[in-house]
């Protein structure tokens, strides 16, 4: 099932790339339909996983990644699909990155396990949900940044106007995503207090969550400055997504390499 969903996501990328090239009404419909089809497949995958596991599919790194892919596509559909053709292909690229990571996890990480007692907390569920929402919204922001950067500097007036719309979308997505990251850190702090007896412990995962949050806070402060508008801001937003990816995928590697202590399972 997961392999089929993954293939559909690649097909969606191909069709969205065609739509970018032809920019016709038929290609827009086919691309939106294909992305919708991919979103539906991931929804089915998640529901099946939840039913089989007997709990919300948010308790392992693999399950989190599945939710992240689904949420990224959902945010695109909810907020932008009806008017933003330009970022469709880039959103699928952002989703594919996560999907590839999820599906290349070893079998031990993909196995379904009973929920450990420590993970049974409404605050943890809120923490993971807000995190996945924040990552998804900022994933769409990164997609908009990628789309804006993919247009050459010497673009036509029409392309320039379209790029301005994409850049506005990017800024809007950053503004929408940051409160979710804030909520994620706040709910995580409350859960950490309930579970570990401290709300903040400079655990590597916590520290990199803070680094990511500060990065987007920096973007919000820089966005109104005229000389940072446009391509420089798009690079910053793209780098922000890089930080998110590092916080999720890179921190476990950092913990192993530097031999840090971490209480976070994922």
């Amino acid at each position: 099932m997961s392999t089929i969903a993954y293939i559909v996501l690649w097909l969606a990328l191909a069709v969205a790339a065609l739509d970018r090239r032809y920019a016709a009404r038929w290609s827009r419909r086919v691309a939106a339909g294909m992305i919708g089809c991919a979103w539906g497949m991931w929804a089915i995958l998640l529901v099946r996983r939840a039913l089989d596991a007997g709990h919300w599919p948010l308790s392992t790194r693999y399950e989190f990644a599945l939710c992240w892919v689904w949420s990224t596509l959902a945010i695109y559909f909810l907020l932008e699909a009806d008017r933003q053709r330009a970022i469709g292909w880039a959103t699928v690229v952002a989703a594919l990155l996560i999907a590839t990571y999820a599906l290349t996890r070893p079998a031990s990480e993909r196995a379904m396990t009973p929920l450990p007692p420590i993970l049974r907390s409404v605050w943890l569920q809120l923490h993971v949900l807000t995190t996945v929402m924040g990552y998804a919204v900022l994933g769409v922001a990164a997609a908009a940044a990628l789309a804006a950067l993919s247009v050459g500097r010497q673009s036509s007036p029409e392309e320039h106007q379209a790029t301005e719309i994409v850049e506005r979308t990017m800024e809007r997505m950053v503004a929408l995503g940051l409160p979710w990251l804030t909520a994620a850190i706040l709910t995580g702090a409350i859960w950490a207090e309930h579970a570990w007896g401290r709300y903040w412990g400079w655990d590597p995962k916590e520290t990199w969550s803070l680094v990511t949050w500060l990065w987007y806070l920096l973007i919000l402060h820089i966005a109104p400055l005229p000389r940072w508008r446009g391509r420089p801001l798009a690079w910053l937003v793209l780098a922000g997504y890089g930080l998110i990816l590092f916080t999720f995928m890179g921190v476990p590697w950092l913990v192993r390499t530097v031999r840090l202590e971490s209480l976070h399972g994922f």
Partner: peptide, 14 residues
């Protein structure tokens, strides 16, 4: 600057 300082701390065992 705060961001960089925080990141530096994760490059060494505490």
């Amino acid at each position: 600057a705060v961001l960089v300082l925080a990141a530096v701390g994760t490059c060494f065992p505490q």
